[in-house]
Structures are given as C-alpha cells and as structure tokens.
Design a protein around this nucleic acid. Structure first.
Lengths: 229, 229
DNA sequence: CACAAGTATTCTGCATACAGAATTTTGTTT
DNA sequence: AAACAAAATTCTGTATGCAGAATACTTGTG
C-alpha cells in the first residue's frame, strides 16, 4: 500500500551515495506546490483532503503533513475547522515581496562577486548567451526558464545557504504570478538590457553595480506584473 | 479526548470577534519551537514522537504535523526513516544568516523611515528609553527582551508583511544562539551606542543612516556571538 | 414564494492500528 | 573478552476509524 502509493509520486531512484532519497512526503509537497504554481489549484481554492488524497493516491495522513509544510511556506492558509486554502496574494503582498526579493538578490549579487569562481561566472555567461538566443527567436518559455536559472545561479554563487533558502520561499510564493505576467515587447527589451548589464557587472566583479542592477530589475518586474494581478 | 489534550496546551480564549482562535496545531508548534529556542531540546537531539507526544499530552498525528511545520521553518531536519532531529547550525550557517538578517533589517529601517507614523516612532523611543534604564542597572534579561522588541518594532514599522515573515523565520533559527551569546561589558557598550544612533536616525527619518546602523549592528552581533558557537 | 429551523450529510481534527524499517539486545563463536 | 549474527524490540510511516464541527439539504411556516 505504502509502496503502491509512493510509486505514483516518487520517481525511481538508484540509491548509491549518501544523498537523501526522495520520500513520499517530499513528493507530495513538490506535487501540490507545482499544482499551486501552475494554477491548477487557484488562489482561494479550498483543498479537500479526501479528493486530493485520492487524486494523488495517498491517504489523508501524509497529505495533511505535506499541507502543514506548505502552510509554513506561505503557499496555503489554515482556516481552523475548514482546512487549507490556497493563499490569495493582494497587490500589496506582491509588491512587498518583490521589494524584499530585490533586496535579497542585490545582496546575492554582492556576495557572488566576492565568492564565485571564474569558472562559475563563465557558466552564468553561457546561460546568459543561451537566453539571448531565445530572445532573438522570441521563444518565450525557454527564455523564461533560462532567466530563472540565471537568477538562481547568482543566488547559488553567493554561497550563502540562508540567503538561498529565504529567497526560494519568497520566489515560490510569486512564481505563479510571474508566470502569467508576460510583458509586452518594449518591457521585454528593457529586461534584456538589464541582463546584459548583470552579466557584465558579474564578469567585472563589480559588486555595487551588480547589486544595483538586480535590485532595480526587480522593481521593474513589479511594473511588468502589476496589471496582471 | 481532543479537548482534554487541547486543555494542556491551548490557553483559554473567549471567542468574540473574527480573530482566529489558537488551534492545537499552533499550540504544539509554538511549544516545540520554544523548547528548541530555550535549549530544552538541544541541537542534534532526535525527537521521539511517542515520548514527546505523551509529554505534551497529544497523540502522534497532530504532533507529526507540527514537526513537519517546524521542518519547513528550518528548525528541524528530517532524516528519512528516523524522524526529526533538532537542526545543528554551523558557524558558517550562523554567519550567513546574520548577513541576511542585517540586510533585511537595513531594508526594514529604510522602509520604516518612509512609512512609520510619528506616534509609532515615539513608541519606539519609549522602548529605547526603557531599555537604556535596564542598561544603567545592568539588568540583562529585560534589556535583552526590550532590545528584541525594538528590532521587531522597526520590522513592523516597515509595514511590509513579507519582510516581517522572512525576518521572523531567520530570527527564530538564531534566537537560541543569541540567547546564550551574552557579550562582555565593552561589547555591550558598543551595542548600546548603536541603539542610540538607531533611535536618532529613526526620529530624523534618515533612511540611509538607519539602514546602515542596523546592518552594521548585525555584523557586530556576529563578533559578539561567534565564540559562543 | 421567501425564509427560517431542523435534519442529514460531509469534512476536518485527532486517535489508534498496523506494517516494515531501524535499533537494541542477546547469544554464539573464536 | 571481542566481534559478529540473529532475534526481539522499538520507532517511524501510513492507513483507517471515530467524534464533533461545518455545510448542504429538507421541510415547515409566514
């Protein structure tokens, strides 16, 4: 039973090495998180433990544990006596989060200039160039994904676990909104210009410049996204 | 049964108004969090669901849900097949977290200068003066608590929910360490001087100055705490 | 026909039961 | 006495059962 249920969710995994193998808990969390981010579970939706559990092929117990986890991440809200609800973010919530994200990315950029190796920076450059290719072709989805990768990479290069972790939490809350909020051509061009400056600043290890670009870039993200809320 | 268990943990609560009344879940989370922060559950301790549950007067189901919540907060780690363990923070973890906290408080100060009302700033001044009284008397515990209140107040005055929430998470992770890490007289004096500058900058609504003091103050916190790890 | 009260149903929150993994204890051999 | 193997025990992970709250439905009344 346990293994049957797990089979539906947990990918096969050859367990060499001491790496923690994915648990059912992790799989449920990841799955429900994706359902929220991709809009399958719209904000305000009340999560029905019975149905959702049947849908995922797990019983209520591990599902409820996963939901509590997502409550702590801020993706769900708990309404006592009536279970979990997909959290609604107001325009102010989004704006506030973007301000914090901008600040965190600014800090990450600063630290990355200090701690990244040359090889790591070259790797970001490769991501950047591939992203620019996609921009030339106006191929939105791969552009979007590479864009995300570049930001994640800069976070990772800060070599600051705590920073990565809080950034991820905030990022996850907004992912859905940023996913819908697709800018027009003019704004897209602006974003691309920002990215040119980012990679240049990183290669020059100019912490102040990189930090500023990243923070400002996030402020512009608000402009791109605000009317999509 | 449910109500009996709840009685052990959940304070009595007259339920007028639409304020969410504390649930057993919240009570367990708060209780275990406190046990970790106060060192009753030392880092590395493996949490025994049976014992801990009996101790708190709740069954394993809601306890496990609470533990998952605390895992997401970063206070516990999950070791598949062997339950939850109180997370150990390395010196680097603490340092990294303090850097992020410093940045967040800096941002909070900047925003507080913008958004706080005069009355709110006067309220912080009152906290500050009371704290200085406690410093004169060298009364450490109330000093410590007032100190925390001032920092929380500045966060709150930023009027940025997302900022408050990520700050709280990081703060909780370090609370235990900061609680032990009691500085000597020289460093204490330095911290007090920082606080003088903070309140002055806030009253002058000098965002740059307040932001800088807060960030630097956190860097000094590292010096005060580093040998306690 | 609208609406309120009472009833039936559904759903959450918690407790318990059970299987299998992890750990400890015990026994045996060298 | 040390080291290994096997058995017994404990503990986690999951499923299920049950009580009470929340919701939907039904029926009676103005």
């Amino acid at each position: 039973m346990a293994s049957e249920a797990a089979a539906l969710l947990v990918d096969d995994f050859d367990s060499r090495g001491p790496i923690a193998r994915p648990t059912l808990h992790d799989a449920i969390v990841a799955r429900v998180r994706d359902m929220i981010i991709e809009g399958e579970l719209a904000p305000g939706t009340r999560l029905h433990e019975g149905n959702l559990g049947k849908m995922l092929g797990v019983s209520r117990t591990p599902l409820r544990e996963a939901l509590k986890f997502l409550v702590s991440e801020g993706l769900l809200e708990l309404s006592p006596g009536r279970g979990a609800v997909v959290r609604q973010f107001s325009a102010k919530d989004v704006h506030d989060s973007l301000i914090v994200l901008g600040n965190l990315e600014g800090l990450a950029g600063r630290l990355a200039c200090e701690h990244a190796t040359d090889a790591e920076i070259r790797e970001v450059r490769r991501l950047h160039d591939r992203m620019m290719d996609m921009y030339e072709k106006r191929d939105r989805l791969p552009y979007f994904k590479l864009n995300q990768s570049i930001h994640s990479a800069i976070l990772r290069l800060s070599k600051n676990e705590a920073l990565v972790s809080v950034h991820n939490v905030l990022q996850a809350r907004l992912k859905r909104i940023r996913y819908i909020g697709n800018e027009g051509p003019e704004k897209w061009a602006g974003a691309v210009a920002d990215h040119e400056e980012m990679i240049n600043a990183l290669e020059a290890r100019d912490a102040d410049r990189l930090s500023k670009v990243l923070t400002d870039h996030m402020a512009e993200t608000w402009e791109r996204v605000r009317n999509a809320i």
